[in-house]
Write a protein that binds this DNA or RNA. Structure first.
Length: 265
DNA sequence: ATGACTCATTACATGAGA
């Protein structure tokens, strides 16, 4: 069984690329983030024509997550318990489309898009930390309830845990993604009993999953490692191989993130 | 030397991303 996660930065702009990727890489379950589309406009048909089922949640052009599976797709949830809401400038807070889960091939897969944070003092940062804190709390609860559960928490976590996960740590001083608070929030998730399997299998430094569109970041290999896969103990034991598909950053019309793939035995 | 990001939107400028 092969599970992949990919921040696609608009599924409509890249549906052909995703279809080609599913076929070329023989992906069984794909978790997408930043689909940037309302549910009513999601391109479900091309995926169904390729033999996949689709579950998605999206309200507008922001955020949006989806699961695409050819191993079944049941028990869909479009938020995790306690998932925090966000409202800017006094607007009514809303639980954004940043989490979706389903049971696919016997594994509960969560596609997660952690809030960006925007700035260390921005209200969006406390939202980000709360999002990760509640997620870690839920994760502990899921394992307590079912220690042998097969659960994968995959997605764009918007945190670079190590200095070697960015091309130049100095660039990020005073900014988001490398701050102690953000790193601590992600550490709490790794202390929940879940293991971050991409680091386990791919420990090499500067193995990035994102390169900004600006300033020739990809050509200069100035990237960030911010996409991860936290697996429950029973699922971690089945992870045979992990790949970061760097080639998907190449060419016209690439997302700024690349897929992360897990081979499950 | 050049020109320097991409996406979506009651679009032609703005918000968001990281």
């Amino acid at each position: 069984m092969r599970i992949a996660s990919w921040n696609i930065n608009s599924v409509r702009a890249r549906v052909d690329r995703v279809l080609a990727y599913l076929d070329d890489h023989q992906i069984d379950v794909l978790a997408l983030q930043e689909t940037k589309v309302a549910d009513s406009a999601f391109p479900v048909e091309p995926f169904e024509a390729a033999g996949y089922e689709v579950a998605r949640t999206g309200f507008d052009q922001y955020n949006g997550v989806a699961l695409i599976s050819r191993l079944g797709l049941s028990q869909v949830q479009t938020k995790f318990p306690g998932q925090p809401a966000f409202g800017k400038d006094g607007k009514e807070p809303r639980v954004e489309a940043r989490a979706i889960s389903a049971v696919c091939g016997g594994v509960t897969v969560w596609s997660l898009y952690v809030p960006h944070g925007r700035g260390l003092e921005d209200p969006h940062m406390s939202y980000k930390l709360e999002f990760l804190s509640v997620l870690a709390h839920d994760a502990v609860g899921w394992l307590t309830a079912a220690p042998s559960a097969q659960i994968a928490l995959v997605g764009d976590f918007n945190v670079a845990p190590l200095d070697t996960d960015v091309w130049d740590p100095a660039v990020f001083e005073g900014k988001t993604h490398t701050s102690p608070a953000e790193r601590a929030a992600l550490t709490r998730l790794s202390q929940s009993g879940f293991s971050e399997v991409t680091r386990q299998h791919l420990p090499d430094e500067r193995n990035y999953t994102f390169w900004d569109y600006q300033q020739l970041r990809f050509q200069r290999n100035q990237g960030m490692r911010i996409d991860f896969a936290f697996c429950s103990p029973a699922l971690s034991a089945r992870v045979a191989e992990v790949r970061i598909v760097r080639d998907e950053r190449k060419g016209v019309g690439a997302s700024d993130h690349v897929p992360v793939e897990l081979d499950i035995s």
